[in-house]
C-alpha cells in the first residue's frame, strides 16, 4: 500500500468519533421504532488486513441474515448488518407486534420490516455523518440474504481488494431489551471517500 493511502492514528480517532456519533443516532432511531431500550457498545474501529477479516467475523459456517446497503453520493462505501436468525426474529416480531415464535422468516412483511429497520438505522447514521462533514451522502435500498459468513467474506474480499489491501472496519454491537445482540453493524467506507472526509474535517495524517 502506498503512503498516500495510509491511515494515521489521528484518522483512526476521527473514525471512532464518527462511529460513536453515528451509532448513537442509529440507536436512538432503533429505540424509537422498537419502542424499547436500545444500548450500544462503543464502536470498535480498526484497520485490518483483508486476509484477517475472517478472524473478526467468526466461524465462516455461521448463518446470518445479511442486510446490505450501498453508500453513494459524496461518500462511497458499503454497510452490512449481520443478524443471527434468533435476533432477526426478535427484532422483526417487535416491529410487527407479534410473538417471536410466530415469525416465519420467509414472510414478505417480516422481511420488509427488517429491511425498513436497516434503512432507518442507516439513515440515522448517515445523517449524523452528513451533519458532521457537510457532505451529502446517499444510500441505496437494502437487500436481504440469509447466508453463511464465509459467503459474505468472499464478497467483501472481491469488493474491497479492488481498491486496497486493508479495510477500515467500524463495528457496533447492540443491546436490545437488555439482550446482548450477536449481530454487527459494519461500515466499510472506501479509501477515496475517507480521504475526502478527512480533508473536510481538517484532519492531517
Amino acid at each position: 500500500m502506498d503512503n498516500e493511502k495510509r491511515i494515521s492514528l489521528s484518522h483512526l480517532d476521527l473514525l471512532k468519533e464518527i462511529g460513536t456519533v453515528g451509532a448513537g443516532r442509529a440507536a436512538t432511531a432503533l429505540a424509537e421504532m422498537l419502542n424499547c431500550k436500545v444500548d450500544i457498545t462503543l464502536p470498535e474501529t480498526k484497520i485490518i488486513p483483508l486476509e484477517s477479516l475472517d478472524k473478526i467475523l467468526g466461524n465462516p459456517e455461521d448463518v446470518y441474515f445479511v442486510l446490505d446497503i450501498g453508500v453513494e453520493g459524496e461518500i462511497g462505501g458499503r454497510i452490512f448488518f449481520l443478524l443471527p436468525p434468533k435476533e432477526a426474529k426478535i427484532l422483526g416480531s417487535t416491529l410487527l407486534g407479534q410473538q417471536t415464535e410466530d415469525i416465519d422468516t420467509e414472510d414478505v412483511l417480516f422481511q420488509s420490516a427488517l429491511k425498513e429497520m436497516v434503512n432507518i438505522v442507516t439513515g440515522a447514521y448517515m445523517n449524523a455523518l452528513s451533519d458532521m462533514s457537510g457532505l451529502t451522502i446517499m444510500y441505496g435500498i437494502p437487500s436481504l440474504a440469509i447466508d453463511m459468513v464465509g459467503a459474505l467474506l468472499d464478497f467483501l474480499f472481491i469488493q474491497i481488494a479492488q481498491h486496497s489491501d486493508e479495510a477500515i472496519f467500524i463495528k457496533t454491537q447492540l443491546k436490545v431489551k437488555d439482550i446482548e445482540f450477536e449481530g454487527f453493524f459494519l461500515f466499510f467506507p472506501d479509501i477515496e471517500s475517507l480521504r475526502k472526509l478527512f480533508e473536510v474535517l481538517g484532519v492531517k495524517g
Binding site: 434503512n119 432507518i120 439513515g123 445523517n127 452528513s130 451533519d131 451529502t136 451522502i137
Partner: peptide, 21 residues
C-alpha cells in the same frame, strides 16, 4: 429516513409541503 439538509431543501424546492424524517 434520509434527513440531510441538502435533500430536504431539494425536496421542498421540488414542491413538497413538509418533510418528516
Amino acid at each position: 429516513a434520509m434527513g440531510q439538509h441538502a435533500l430536504v431543501v431539494e425536496a421542498i424546492q421540488a414542491g413538497a409541503k413538509d418533510f418528516i424524517v
